[in-house]
Design a protein around this nucleic acid. Structure first.
Lengths: 127, 127
DNA sequence: TCAATCAGGCACCTTGAGGTAACCAGGTAT
DNA sequence: ATACCTGGTTACCTCAAGGTGCCTGATTGA
């Protein structure tokens, strides 16, 4: 059950896992990976799958994922140049951990909401 | 391999998993859970385990975790009043998914850094 | 010809997460 | 008496994530 081999017992400020976690735990990365899980898609196809995302956010997040080697950007020189995004093998290995988190949120949502209600009630009683 | 039962095929804007993900994917939550994994600890003991965290950040994050039912706050009425933080059973179920992510970052850090170097090189060549 | 799609780029702005530092009450060692 | 520990709260500030809107250049269908 121990998950702290960062240093012996504490989390040092420069633990490399910190920075990497920041990179993948943003607002859209997990959902983009989910949408791409079935196969490569083009820019606007991804966009259509993610209700609420802006072009800018999608571009930025795809660039970050590309830089980190999670997705690959393939330019296809067709008539109107097409760009296809695809999960890399490295990116595939991230789907498992993401799925675990995703299913946790789905399964434990009710319990979390109950905890919140109880907490908020305790708070207003204290007032 | 499909992880998108949020809606049929796309991520709708109001998917509840989104909000919950934001709650747990912040800067300190994962590390606090890791530090508390071995057993309950007092405020300043947690603080000592997390190099770089401020009192405010720790207080805020602990409150959020408490509100979401992930950790419990136990006030012990000793001579100088002590406060102990403990992972709840619900919080325990989150350790697994977090561990998966944590180990992914540790195992794939080198490959990610290689990808970054390659990407950055490609970019400056394009310039 | 006009409009629309595709894959973005760019400038501006808001919001909130998180840091800094001061302050607090109560206890306690010197 | 005074200075420090414990577990906070509060006000203030910064910085970056992310949103909005406008621009592009090429192509293609009505």
């Amino acid at each position: 059950m121990e998950m702290k081999e960062c240093s012996i017992k504490e989390f040092r400020q420069d633990c490399p896992c910190r920075g990497l976690f920041d990179q993948i735990a943003d607002k859209w990365s997990m959902m983009i990976l989910a949408v791409l899980a079935d196969g490569p898609l083009r820019f606007n196809a991804i966009k259509r799958g993610l209700e609420g995302i802006t072009q800018k956010a999608l571009t930025q997040t795809l660039r970050k994922l590309e830089r980190n080697g999670i997705v690959a950007r393939n330019v296809i020189a067709t008539s109107p140049v097409a760009v296809e995004y695809e999960i890399t093998p490295l990116g595939r290995t991230l789907i498992g951990p993401f799925k675990a988190l995703y299913y946790w949120t789905k399964e434990n949502m009710p319990e979390v909401e109950a905890a919140r209600a109880a907490f908020d009630k305790r708070m207003e009683e204290t007032v």
